[in-house]
Design a protein around this nucleic acid. Sequence first.
DNA 1: ATAGGGGTTACAGTAACTGGAAGGTCAAGA
DNA 2: TCTTGACCTTCCAGTTACTGTAACCCCTAT
Lengths: 128, 128
Amino acid sequence: MNIGEIAKRTGMPAKTIRYYEDIGLIRPHRDANGYRKFDEPGFHKLAFLGRARALGFSIEDCRKLLALYEDETRASADVKKLAQEHLRQIEGKISQLRTMQETLTNLVDTCAGDHRPDCPILRDLASG
Amino acid sequence: MNIGEIAKRTGMPAKTIRYYEDIGLIRPHRDANGYRKFDEPGFHKLAFLGRARALGFSIEDCRKLLALYEDETRASADVKKLAQEHLRQIEGKISQLRTMQETLTNLVDTCAGDHRPDCPILRDLASG
DNA sequence: ATAGGGGTTACAGTAACTGGAAGGTCAAGA
DNA sequence: TCTTGACCTTCCAGTTACTGTAACCCCTAT
């Protein structure tokens, strides 16, 4: 399959797939004409990457996950550790965002939002 | 005040302050020796930016907020609209992260995390 | 022969900094 | 006076994970 076909099947832009090759995440074969040629395992690998990225894993984490996936002698503990660390990051980010959300919601709710200049949002930003 | 003093008072790295000048967010005066010289309004403006950034506003939003702040004829509606849009973004991000968190939590919970290779996390990534 | 719809590379840009190099300035101490 | 150390300056490169664009090649159908 050519890159366009694979892009359609994985739902990722062809550009992203080329990028993944650039950074050494994948290593597709080449046709005589220089076109990238994907087989089922190649597609599978991209789908794996797509799902890992959808779970928010960084590219470097994806690289490690892929390595673990392909290592039959892996310890599931290593995978779990990676996932747990990532989960912690996500939870940290969520709580950060929730703090912002709460503050912003309060501010937005107290702002008249009319033609007058007086604004509690700006007042808050101006004076903490 | 020199940049170091301001950095201490605002809690932001001097580097960031220089960057804010680079992109035209602030315009500090200069001493005869070329050092940036901050007065109280300059400090105030940086503090404003710091708080807006802490609420997750993008630099471009910060630029707009600052302009609104300094425009005595602003309509609070404009500020509110900005804040509401940002709030929507935050809420979208939170719900995205929560989806990831839920999936990951499930996966992590079902993974033995021992020396054996068998791993539900990898299984999930491999087959959706 | 040509038009279109593939594909290829390489380079630049995004957001918001951060790090590092190379060098100027200033106050204090020997 | 000289030097040391802590400041400050500018400029350039790197970060993350792509995305956009240009210039060009390839293949098939008309």
